[in-house]
Amino acid sequence: MSEKFVVIATDKMSLSGLVALTEDDRFEILVPDGEEEMREALGRAHGLIVRSATKVTRELLEQAPNLRVVGRAGVGVDNIDLGVATEFGIPVINAPEGNTVSAAELAMALILTVARNISWADASVQGGAWARSQFSGIEIRGKTLGLVGAGRIGAEVALRAQAFGMETIAHDPYLTEERAKELRIERVELGDVIARGDVISLHVPLTPQTEGMIGEAELKAMKSTAILVNTARGGVVDEGALIAALKSGEIAAAALDVYETEPLPEDSPLRGVQNLVLTPHLGASTAEAQELVSNEIALGVSAALLEGDLSKALNAPAIGGEELEFLRPLMDLAHKVGRVAGALGRGGMRKADISVAGLDDEILSPLTAAAMTGVLTPVLGARNVNYVNALHLATGRG
């Protein structure tokens, strides 16, 4: 294209990490200051990069008629309405790898802080006391670390905990036996992690399945000496149940970096609980992590806009790289066949059956999306249906 792709960078993002975009003449980077500049920028934008502060809502997307991709510089997409983005046909990508080490190091820092009473001892000394006997802690050597989630971050936490001499067990339905052996982690059920863990560390996304997964029953099943650490997502832990468990002595202590509501309200009952350490969502708050996630998301946005690479898309069949090059002619063909079918059945089509033979099952999803794009184009128009929203629109039409 002759004109440049316009990409908005929000949330005080460092441009030094966006070199894949800033040093490419095919892109124009906008850093809007204030609501008025943001509205003007959205009217031109092809790409939008956010951290956690900007809320990508229906109202925002309605102001961005040319938007082709939303990039989240980080892992969680709680601030992005994926359903609405899909409805608008806008792929959402994230940067899941850049903050891995920073998040793992924070988890270990919180484990050690609680085990050795560091934050409480510091507050005591800063207040003028010298009460050594009040802050006797525990060694983590020989203790069992129970991981809930053993993906990138959980695996890095396990590696560091093992260096301290901890035994590591984990519940993760996606953890294979081969990978567990490689990580020297024992695969167990969630109930075993809860019952056996001296330290229980959470590393799962917030989904309908994980919301409130650590509640009253799970806390009652923990050891009375257990330490609970959550650097994953607020909402995974039932905060009311946690407060009750800490005050009653059902568990020894906890540390939270994430909350159901962020920023944490000033009147939150979590504040002031004596055996609870609180930090303000610092998982990715290192200079290194911010540079890495910025670079990762810049590369992802560039690939999406220049090549149509959606291998990092969270709301569309993920294809990119060599697989995209292989599939592109097949997807073009599927789109054309679908368009012919849509034209022939216009006005009376109730169902579309899509069959593929002689190809791997994993490419059925992208070919189905391409074919359905063709089917719906005569009905909805080319501007209103694409690879991202075709299946969503088809489902919505029955």
Rank of each mutant, 00 (worst) to 15 (best):
G154C: 03
L276M: 05
P265A: 09
D33K: 08
A254T: 02
R58L: 04
D360A: 14
A316F: 06
T286Q: 03
W130I: 08
E105G: 10
A180F: 03
T395F: 15
D25M: 14
P173M: 12
I118S: 13
A158T: 01
M331E: 01
L145V: 04
P269M: 03
S52P: 10
T54P: 05
L67S: 06
E62F: 09
E178M: 12
A109M: 14
L159H: 11
Y174A: 11
N230D: 03
P269E: 01
P91C: 13
G348N: 13
V188M: 13
G272A: 11
R39E: 08
A115D: 09
A318Y: 08
T100Q: 00
G234N: 00
A158V: 02
E35V: 06
R187F: 14
V375T: 07
H281A: 07
A303H: 10
L306S: 07
T144V: 10
A357F: 15
Q126P: 12
R26T: 00
H392V: 07
A131S: 14
G165E: 04
A161P: 02
V125F: 14
A123N: 13
R184F: 13
K223I: 04
V7C: 02
T168L: 08
R72T: 05
S16K: 10
A352T: 05
V340W: 13
S124T: 10
K143L: 11
V31H: 03
V70T: 05
T168I: 07
A287K: 11
G128A: 06
V337E: 03
I138D: 12
R346A: 15
E250A: 14
K351L: 12
A226W: 02
E288L: 07
P280W: 10
T210L: 07
A316I: 02
T168E: 08
E40A: 10
R339S: 06
L314P: 06
R51I: 05
G321F: 09
T286V: 00
R328W: 05
L67G: 06
G165I: 02
N94E: 07
E105C: 10
A232G: 02
D172N: 12
V70M: 09
L278T: 02
P173T: 08
D238S: 01
T168F: 08
K223L: 06
V70A: 07
V70F: 09
A318N: 07
R346F: 15
I90G: 04
F135D: 03
V148Y: 10
T231R: 00
R383F: 14
M108R: 08
G358E: 01
D33I: 05
K55Q: 15
R271W: 12
R72I: 07
A303E: 12
L159V: 11
I169T: 05
L327I: 04
K351D: 10
P329R: 04
T261L: 15
V188G: 12
R350H: 13
L306G: 06
I185H: 09
A313F: 11
L344P: 12
L145H: 03
V77Y: 15
P269G: 04
L147V: 00
L393D: 08
E186W: 12
P205S: 07
A303M: 11
I29Q: 01
